[in-house]
């Protein structure tokens, strides 16, 4: 599930001093980086499952174009993780498949 990250830190990169929660698991983030970057540094696995077939997807374009990085952040569904800066204490949930009518966001 928690595959190793596909990235490593560049020389001289700042420490990851922020703590986010992803489905109850702590994820560390660097000030100024996007939530999607923090998720990619945390794991090389999927960050959501598609509404149509349930296939696993991870952040892709990193610039707000593809919408593959959609997550729920602090209760708001369908947020582009690549367009939001990581902040201390953020609560992130993966979106698994299609939403059902009556689901709480």
């Amino acid at each position: 599930m928690n595959a190793a990250s596909r990235f490593r830190d560049a020389p001289g990169a700042a420490p990851r001093s922020l703590r986010l929660m992803l489905d109850g698991v702590p994820v560390l983030a660097r000030p100024g980086e996007s939530v999607a970057a923090a998720l990619l540094a945390h794991s090389g696995g999927a960050t959501r499952q598609t509404p149509v077939t349930g296939a696993g997807r991870a952040p892709y374009c990193m610039m707000g174009v593809c919408f593959d990085c959609l997550v729920t952040i602090d209760g708001h569904p369908n947020v582009q993780a690549c367009m939001v800066s990581a902040r201390e204490g953020m609560v992130i949930q993966r979106q698994i498949g299609a939403r059902r009518l009556g689901d709480q966001p």
């Binding site: 990235f7 560049a10 001289g12 990169a13 100024g32 996007s34 970057a37 990619l40 540094a41 990193m62």
Partner: peptide
């Protein structure tokens, strides 16, 4: 973008 913004390679 990840290299520039996050120091990730």
């Amino acid at each position: 973008i990840l290299m520039k913004q996050s120091g990730m390679v």
